[in-house]
Design a protein around this nucleic acid. Structure first.
Length: 638
DNA sequence: CTGCGTAGCTCG
DNA sequence: GTACGAGCTACGCAGG
C-alpha cells in the first residue's frame, strides 16, 4: 500500500493510496519491521540542489511505500535510518537525492546501493544508458515512463494520483533492480567494485555539495592579461601581412576610414584569424597548398617556422585560454557564488569525469588554479597527490626490480631508465655539474634529474616511452611525438624493452588477455571489469584488434589508479564523518585529492590525509612503494 | 536561428 | 591506420 503524508488532499478517494495524519505512522512501521534494506527517493522542482526545492520524499520497501510532502513536513526524523550504516538505502543515482536531502535537513546518507552505478559496474565499458526508464526494461522486462517526473517542476496544490503512484514506483523499481543486480554482481565477481562505487559516490556528492570558491577579481585580472597578449599577437600577425609584399594579395586596399582611429593604428588587413579557411589560404601561399591542418601538432613539426606561423600558434593558444578559461568561467557560478561541478562516475576505465565546469581540465598553470580559493581566512587548502602514481602501478604490475628500486630510493625514474637504455651514450653526455652523477650520502649516485643538454634529450625520449607504455604505444606514435623516423623509434623501443623485459611481458600479457577474452580487469582486490563490445567484430575489422590490445594494456594501469583514488576518497570521507574533524572535500583530479581544513587543524590533517591516501595505495601496492605528498596552502594548486 | 558533427585545445 | 582516458568551445554545414 502507498501512504501519503500531506495536508493537501484530493477530494476523490483512491484505491491506490491512502492518506496518513502523522509521521509517527511511518516510524512505527519502520520500527516494527526493522528492514535491512529500504528504498529512498526524492522529487524536486528541478536539478539544482541550491535553487530548486524538494517537494516529495519517499521511503519504503516492496510492501509499503511512504510519501512525505516536504512542502509541509520536515524529514529530519529519518536521520536515524538514512545515516545508519547497517541499513542499505537503495536509490537510483544516489548523488542527486543526497544533495537535496543534505540541503533540506543536513542529513548525510550513508550505506547506499545505487542502481545506476550498479548497472555501470555490471556493464563496464559498454557505454549504455543508465536511466531508470532504461534499466527497468533491461533488467525487469518492464516499461516505465518518467513523464510524471517533470510534472513536479511547477506543481502547486495536492499531488495528483499519477504523481503519487510515480513516487511509489520510484521506490519499487530500484528495490526490484537491486534484487536482480545483487546476484549478477556476485556472479561476475564485481561486488567489491560495486561497493567501492556506492561508497565513493557519497564523497563525490560531498564535493559537489561543498563547491569551491573563485577569487573573481583575480580570475578577471588573469583573463585581462590573456586578452591583452591576444591582441598583441593579432597585431603582430596583421603587421606581417601588411608590411610583407609576399602577402600583398591578402591586404585590404579599402582600409577602414574611421576618423576616430589614429592614423598609425589603421590596419590594411581584415583577416579573421579564428576562421580556418582564410588562414589556411594564407599559410598555403608559403607551403604551396600542402597544408591541410592548423593544429599545433602539424604546425609544430614544420621546419624553420616563419614568425607568422609562430605568432599564429601563440594566438590560438591564448584564444583557447581566453574562451574557455576567461570571463565565461564566472557564468558557471551558482547562486551561492561557488562552483559546484558535476561528476560522472564509472567511465570506461573506472575514472571519473567532470563537467559544468570541467575542473579537471583547468590549465595546470597555478596562475589559473590559484584563483580557486577559500575566502574564510580560518580555513586553508590541504591537498594530497600520489607521486608518479601510474608509473608505480606499472612497476608493481611488472615487478620490475630496476623501476621498484629507483622509485623506492626517490631517484628520477626517467633518467635511470635513460641511463640503462643508452649506456655509454648517456655516460658521455654528462656535464661537470650533472645532478645524476652527484654523489649521495651513501656513496652512490643520487640519480636526480639534471640539466645537461645531452641528458635532457635522451631523458625526454625515454620519458615519452615510459608514459607511452601506458597507452599501448606503437613505433609510429613514438616517431610522431619525438619527431624522429619510424625505424629510429622502432630501434629505441627495442632497446628499451631489452632493458626492461618484464615490462614488455606484462603489457603483452594484458594485451593478449583482452583480445582473447573480450574484457580486461583492474588489479585485485578491485577487479573492475572493462568489456570490449567491439570484440565480436575482431575478426572482421583489422583495426579493432589493435584498439582492444592498446586499451587492454592501458586499463589495468589507468583503472587501478582510479580505483585507488576512489578508495582514498571513501577512507577520507569516513574519517571526516567519524571523527567530526573540521575538514571538507572540495575536489579531486585523477591522482589528487583536495580538501579545505580549519587552519588550527591543518597540520594534523596534513599528516592524517597522507596516511589515508597511502593506506588506500597499499591495497594494491602492498610494499608501500607509492607515496602521497600533501601540502597546506592558501589556494588550489597543481 | 538552431542543431549537430568535427577539429582542436585543456587536463591526468 | 597507428597512444589511453575525458569535456568544452568554436566553426561550418544542414535545415526551417
Amino acid at each position: 500500500m502507498i501512504y501519503v503524508l500531506t495536508p493537501e488532499r484530493n477530494a476523490i478517494p483512491s484505491n491506490e493510496y491512502q492518506y496518513i495524519d502523522s509521521i509517527e505512522f511511518i516510524h512505527s512501521y519502520l520500527f516494527e519491521h526493522q528492514p535491512s534494506r529500504i528504498a529512498v527517493d526524492t522529487e524536486t522542482t528541478g536539478l539544482d540542489f541550491i535553487d530548486d526545492k524538494m517537494v516529495m520524499f519517499q521511503i519504503g520497501d516492496l510492501d509499503n511505500q511512504f510519501i512525505v510532502d516536504t512542502r509541509y513536513h520536515k524529514i529530519d526524523s529519518f536521520r536515524m535510518y538514512l545515516e545508519d550504516t547497517d541499513i542499505t538505502k537503495v536509490l537510483q543515482n544516489a548523488k542527486f537525492d543526497y544533495k537535496f536531502i543534505k540541503q533540506a535537513s543536513g542529513i548525510e546518507l550513508d550505506k547506499v546501493f545505487d542502481t545506476m552505478l550498479a548497472d555501470k559496474v555490471i556493464n563496464g565499458g559498454k557505454e549504455m544508458p543508465s536511466g531508470m526508464d532504461e534499466l527497468a526494461p533491461r533488467y525487469l522486462n518492464e516499461w516505465i515512463s518518467k513523464s510524471a517526473q517533470k510534472s513536479f517542476l511547477k506543481h502547486r496544490g495536492p499531488f495528483t494520483e499519477e504523481q503519487i503512484i510515480y513516487g511509489a514506483k520510484d521506490l519499487i523499481i530500484p528495490l526490484r533492480l537491486c534484487e536482480v543486480m545483487i546476484p549478477m554482481l556476485k556472479e561476475k565477481d564485481l561486488t567489491y567494485t560495486a561497493s567501492l562505487e556506492f561508497a565513493a559516490c557519497l564523497a563525490f556528492a560531498d564535493i559537489e555539495f561543498n563547491g569551491i570558491e573563485v577569487d573573481k577579481e583575480l580570475w578577471l585580472k588573469r583573463a585581462d592579461q590573456t586578452l591583452e597578449d591576444l591582441k598583441t599577437c593579432e597585431t603582430e600577425m596583421n603587421t606581417i601581412i601588411e608590411t610583407d609584399p609576399f602577402f600583398k594579395e591578402f591586404q585590404d586596399p579599402d582600409k577602414q576610414l574611421d576618423l576616430w582611429i589614429p592614423d598609425d593604428q589603421i590596419s590594411y588587413v581584415n583577416i579573421d584569424w579564428n576562421s580556418r579557411k582564410p588562414v589556411l589560404e594564407i599559410f598555403n601561399k608559403i607551403y604551396h597548398g600542402e597544408l591541410t591542418s592548423l593544429s599545433k601538432d602539424v604546425l609544430g613539426t614544420l621546419e624553420h617556422r616563419p614568425p607568422l606561423i609562430r605568432a599564429f600558434m601563440k594566438y590560438k593558444k591564448l584564444k583557447k585560454l581566453y574562451d574557455s578559461y576567461g570571463p565565461s568561467m564566472l557564468d558557471k557560478l551558482k547562486s551561492d557564488g561557488k562552483i559546484h561541478t558535476h561528476f560522472s562516475q564509472v567511465l570506461t576505465t573506472g575514472r571519473v569525469s567532470n563537467s559544468k565546469p570541467n575542473m579537471q581540465q583547468i590549465p595546470a598553470d597555478n596562475s589559473f588554479r590559484n584563483c580557486f580559493v577559500c575566502s574564510d581566512p580560518d580555513w586553508v587548502f590541504v591537498s594530497s597527490d600520489y607521486s608518479s602514481q601510474e608509473l608505480c602501478v606499472i612497476a608493481t604490475l611488472a615487478k620490475d626490480p630496476v623501476w621498484i628500486a629507483a622509485l623506492e630510493q626517490g631517484k628520477d625514474l626517467h633518467s635511470v631508465c635513460a641511463a640503462l637504455v643508452f649506456g655509454k651514450k648517456w655516460e658521455n653526455a654528462a656535464e661537470p655539474d650533472c645532478a645524476f652523477y652527484k654523489l649521495g650520502e651513501d656513496g652512490g649516485y643520487e640519480n636526480k634529474k639534471c640539466e645537461c643538454p645531452g641528458h635532457k634529450t635522451l631523458r625526454s625520449g625515454v620519458k615519452s616511452i615510459n608514459f607511452g607504455l601506458a597507452y599501448g604505444m606503437s613505433e609510429y606514435a613514438l616517431s610522431d611525438t619525438l619527431g624522429i623516423s619510424v625505424p629510429e623509434a622502432r630501434e629505441l623501443i627495442e632497446t628499451y624493452f631489452k632493458t626492461f623485459p618484464s615490462i614488455r611481458a606484462t603489457l603483452q600479457k594484458f594485451g593478449d588477455y583482452g583480445k582473447r577474452h573480450g574484457y580486461i580487469m583492474t588489479m585485485p582486490p578491485f577487479k573492475r571489469k572493462r568489456y570490449f563490445p567491439k570484440h565480436k567484430y575482431i575478426g572482421e575489422d583489422s583495426s579493432i584488434s589493435g584498439q582492444i590490445e592498446r586499451a587492454s594494456k592501458n586499463t589495468p594501469i589507468q583503472g587501478s589508479s582510479a580505483d585507488m583514488v576512489k578508495l582514498a576518497l571513501v577512507k577520507i570521507r569516513k574519517y571526516i564523518k567519524r571523527d567530526q574533524v573540521p575538514v571538507k572535500l572540495v575536489m579531486t583530479v585523477h591522482d589528487q585529492v583536495d580538501t579545505i581544513a580549519h587552519v588550527d587543524y591543518a597540520d594534523t590533517w596534513r599528516d592524517k590525509l597522507t596516511e589515508l591516501m597511502e593506506d588506500a595505495a597499499k591495497t594494491i601496492i602492498t610494499n608501500g612503494l607509492l607515496k602521497a605528498e600533501t601540502e597546506v596552502s592558501r589556494a588550489w594548486k597543481k
